[in-house]
Design a protein around this nucleic acid. Structure first.
Length: 556
RNA sequence: GAUCCCGUAGCUCAGCUGGUAGAGCAUUUGACUUUUAAUCAAAGGGCCUUGGGUUCGAGUCCCAACGGGAUCACCA
């Protein structure tokens, strides 16, 4: 009989909920499920924007509990809660010989586990710092204890009580009062967890499905709270970078994301449209050209940490939007920049990881100064036993073939060099290594090397075989710069849509006069991956780009 | 864009050579006043991603689509 009563009440809730969502205030008595079926299947409902959320049994029960709380005069969504301690503060500072120091604490968090034992119950609540156990006893709580039946895993509660240690040795809060702060009406995927004596946590049945973790990061953060560490570190890394630059007097600036001409890198852009101006605009692919204009204008050190957008493939190293750091400092060159990068990366590693040596996927990486410095063509000699300096395209093609590196026979000299480098050299660059002095054709914005014909003053920093930073002595010879961009335009006209576009205003700025300047770009996401031991960019972005889900019945 | 693997209850996963779906956790009901992956007993809960096909019969075999993962190509 109890069952039947409950069922009818659940149905009542379904109907009530459904009607509410249609704009009706309330209904007075339980109806049959036939009404529900009629309502949800009726044409005007299905084709309008009104809610027809399908709820499973567990959700309906939670909604029923929500209504019951309200009918008891309890607001399931109060405005605030006066918390006295975070859970970790209690666990770290509680002393068995001085329990009075914590005789009245107020904690708040999400219920992650409930163990009911009749007239006493235990639960664990989780806040941003961790978890603590709550002990609830009927003798102490009286009638309020019975309200516990309206509380579920996933609800957010406040608890007032005193701290003690249980017979099993766990520091817990003995509740004198507990308050619903947020009633959750959906089921969250929380697995049980077991904490071993050495502190290692084994989590059972926590969400493993990567798709759900990336699409519904809030659930991932609740169920796998340790991933918060990655994002806290990310924040720490960016803060360290800002502090480092600010201390040196360089200023953080903001430049346009919507650009009429895109430039500063070789990449395909996203295109958008401005209605009032009726023009195409591009989402920036790099900050470079705007930041250099600011150096022309008289700033002597500018930097920007912001999103770039590239309309290219996605994989575990590429997201369509990513965070880049660029910095330009007047009167400096790329040699100076190398030392600055050593200092910067060393400082970041120490502040984010506590040491200059970090572990990444089983390899120790040392950010101790100085980093290795190698000239690009010396590396070809070292790892491919080839002197490629000054070779023609045909010679390079033959060289590639001689060491079994597959390249498209129609590839440009630069592509061939790049391919040999990535196959033969890059995998060896595990510890931080500066690769210096690139061919001019690869670097249309870098200053010609004063002594090495055909090379520019440029370096890239490689770690774990991946490029992490790119820098050069900026090209400030206006005639040379124009010639290089026009060369790019020719390549572009020949069909390479990644080649750069001529930006006349940028060229004009260089004609006005750019002082000798060193510039640097760093991929922040990849740096964060290294320092947080993640091998997928999706694990260092809260909301990685995902293909939109199409609804199952769309179009029916 | 190419290839391979995956998609079953709220979660984690079984489901053999085709015969109308199973477990643990979670939920509900009951027992239990220091438990801890609590336990015990009972119950409810599935558009088996979608759409075709083969078949008397498809979660299972075939094709396609959608979504995810991995590898490759391009890029940071």
């Amino acid at each position: 009989m109890r069952r039947a009563g409950r069922d009818s009440h659940v149905r009542h809730c379904i109907v009530t909920e459904c009607l509410r969502s249609c704009g009706y205030r309330s209904i007075s008595s339980p109806r049959s499920t036939a009404i529900f079926a009629t309502i949800v299947s009726s044409e005007y409902l299905g084709s309008s924007s009104m809610s027809t959320v399908q709820r499973n049994e567990q959700e309906l029960i939670k909604i029923e509990k929500l209504h019951e709380l309200r009918s008891l005069g309890i607001n399931p969504y109060p405005v605030s809660y006066d918390r006295s301690h975070h859970t970790v503060e209690i666990i770290n500072t509680f002393r068995d010989d001085e329990p009075d120091a914590m005789s009245a604490v107020r904690v708040a968090g999400r219920i992650m586990a409930i163990r009911k034992m009749g007239k006493a119950s235990f639960c664990h609540i989780q806040d941003v710092t961790g978890r603590i156990q709550i002990y609830l006893k009927k003798d102490d709580l009286g009638e309020a204890y019975d309200l516990l039946r309206l509380y579920d895993i996933g609800d957010i509660v406040g608890v007032e009580g005193y701290v003690f240690r249980t017979r099993m040795g766990e520091i817990s809060v003995h509740a004198r009062e507990f308050t619903m702060l947020t009633k959750s009406v959906t089921v969250i995927p929380v697995g049980k967890e077991e904490v071993a004596e050495d502190g290692t946590v084994t989590r059972y049945d926590a969400i493993a499905d990567k798709e759900q973790r990336y699409r519904k990061r809030y659930l991932d953060l609740i169920a796998n709270p340790d991933i918060k560490e990655t994002f806290v570190k990310r924040s720490q890394i960016i803060r360290t970078i800002r502090n480092f630059f600010d201390e040196r007097g360089w200023i953080e600036v903001e430049t346009p994301i919507l650009q009429p001409i895109y430039g500063g890198a070789t990449a395909r852009p996203f295109v958008t449209h401005h209605n009032a101006l009726d023009v195409e605009l591009y989402l920036r692919i790099a900050d470079e050209l705007y930041l250099k204009r600011l150096i022309v204008g008289g700033f002597e050190g500018v930097y920007e940490i912001s999103k770039n957008f590239r309309n290219e493939g996605m994989d575990k190293a590429h997201n369509p939007e990513f965070t880049a750091l660029e910095i330009y400092v007047a009167y400096k060159d790329y040699i100076w920049m190398m030392e600055m990068v050593e200092d910067l990366f060393n400082t970041i590693a120490v502040s984010a990881c506590g040491a200059a040596t970090i572990a990444f996927q089983g390899t120790d990486i040392s950010f101790a100064k100085p980093f290795a410095k190698k000239k690009m063509f010396d590396l070809f000699q070292e790892y491919a036993c080839l002197n490629l300096r000054g070779q023609s395209r045909e010679q390079l093609l033959a060289s590639a073939k001689s060491i079994h590196v597959d390249v498209d026979p129609s590839a440009s000299a630069m592509k061939i060099l790049d391919e040999i480098f990535s196959v033969k050299v890059q995998p060896h660059l595990i510890q931080p290594t500066f690769v210096m002095d690139y061919p001019v054709e690869m670097s249309p914005l870098a200053k010609a090397h004063p002594r090495e014909e055909g090379l520019v003053e440029r370096f890239e920093l490689f770690i774990m075989g991946k490029e992490v930073a790119n820098a050069f002595s900026e090209l400030n010879d206006p005639l040379d710069q124009r010639a290089r961009l026009e060369e790019q335009a020719t390549i572009r006209a020949a069909g390479d849509d990644e080649a750069m576009v001529v930006d006349e205003d940028f060229l004009h700025a260089i004609e006005v006069g750019l002082p000798p300047t060193a510039g640097l770009g760093v991929g922040i996401d990849r740096l964060v991956m290294l320092l947080t031991n993640n091998d997928s960019i999706r694990d260092v972005l809260f909301f990685p780009q995902m293909r939109p889900e199409r609804h199952k019945h769309e179009g029916e």
